[in-house]
């Protein structure tokens, strides 16, 4: 056999590193989304004995209110009007300005609901592009370092859904970026306040972002009754279909870990039946409203009233309020209603 020279050694080392990386990657890739197997409620959690493999094992609990809130700012802004861009801007002025949420140099992520690739925004299955576009330019004007918009669509590829919903065009025009959620960025993180789930694979960039603006569209859902801001966060986890056995509590658990700095519920067009995918214009009602608040529970609770329900009727909102994620009692907060 010939001697091992430098070239052979480097080739062998690179080959070995490649193989090792592949095996380790496969180990990471094939890990279940949660520690518990599905369905899980009967299995006792032994979370503390599980070895943790990254620095996210003990996250600091998210603060439940923004750094400062001006005294005259509304707790919840409800703006009604024809022009989506205008009502979003008005709502943020009522909340005390976008500067209350976005500091100069912040890394901002906007999470709309872009669930399917086969519906344009008229069908009210995906968030109104003008609302997302307005929030993008507002954040950039407030000095955000960059604004990324992302969602993982379940029906059809996200790439196509971005285009079909019209959001890609609006965001690019406003100067933001559309990011395709990549498999490599999910991290298994602990959910310390979680009552049902205590660990899940969550998109790393959303955990790391300075500001998360949650822009759901208000629509019908047969199990959750309504899908609003809290449920919108299902788009940032791996295997969201594993949430459904105890959907309301799991949504609340997820929201206890991922904090939406600002929630803007798009109710310009709302889907009243056959949600979340829709497809019938008869089910769509034009409400021409946006609801904005730093409190996701309050915003969702108000949005429920558009469907003739209260926050108490929607299980996820009830669970969120019970966990102390926000206030669902609309009579105790300052709601500012504006017509434009």
């Amino acid at each position: 056999m010939s001697k091992v020279n430098r070239r052979k050694f480097i080739t062998a080392a690179l080959g070995g590193a490649f193989t090792a990386a592949t095996i380790y990657g496969y180990y990471q890739y094939s890990k279940p989304a949660d520690i518990k197997s599905y369905p899980s409620s009967s299995i006792t959690q032994t979370e503390s004995s599980q070895p943790t493999d990254n620095s996210d094992s003990s996250p600091t609990p998210p603060t439940q209110s923004p750094a400062y809130s001006p005294k005259d700012a509304a707790y919840l802004a409800v703006v009604h009007g024809e022009n989506p861009t205008e009502i979003v801007e008005t709502a943020l002025v009522a909340l005390g300005g976008i500067e209350r949420f976005v500091k100069p140099g912040d890394d901002v992520i906007i999470k709309p609901n872009i669930c399917v690739s086969y519906r344009s925004f008229e069908y009210a299955a995906t968030t109104n592009p003008e609302v997302v576009g307005a929030l993008t330019s507002l954040s950039l004007n407030a000095g955000a370092k960059r604004v990324r918009v992302m969602d993982y669509s379940f029906g059809g590829s996200s790439e196509k859904a971005y285009t079909a919903s019209g959001i890609e065009e609006a965001v690019n025009a406003a100067g933001g970026e559309m990011e395709l959620m990549s498999d490599i960025k999910y991290r298994a993180v602990d959910i310390p306040q979680g009552k049902d789930i205590t660990r899940w694979l969550i998109y790393g960039d959303i955990l790391d972002a300075d500001v998360l603006i949650n822009v759901p569209i208000a629509k019908h859902h047969s199990l959750a009754r309504l899908t609003l801001g809290m449920k919108n966060l299902l788009g940032i986890v791996k295997k969201p279909n594993r949430f459904h056995s105890n959907l309301a509590q799991r949504i609340a658990d997820l929201n206890s870990r991922v904090y939406s700095t600002l929630t803007v519920v798009d109710a310009v067009r709302i889907l009243k039946d056959h949600g979340p995918t829709g497809g019938n214009l008869d089910d769509v009602e034009i409400a021409n409203t946006v609801i904005a608040s730093h409190d996701i529970v309050a915003a969702d609770s108000y949005a429920a009233t558009l469907f003739g329900l209260t926050g108490n009727d929607v299980p996820a909102i009830r669970s969120g309020a019970q966990m102390g994620l926000g206030n669902m009692d609309l009579s105790s907060i300052k709601v500012e209603k504006i017509d434009v």
């Binding site: 859902h221 047969s222 199990l223 105890n246 959907l247 056959h274 995918t277 829709g278 019938n280």
Partner: peptide, 18 residues
């Protein structure tokens, strides 16, 4: 089989009337 919630199939169905 278990009497627990899960309507993932209905949620995903792309047909307008489901």
């Amino acid at each position: 089989a278990q009497g627990k919630d899960c309507i993932v199939c209905e949620e995903m169905c792309p047909i307008p009337e489901k």
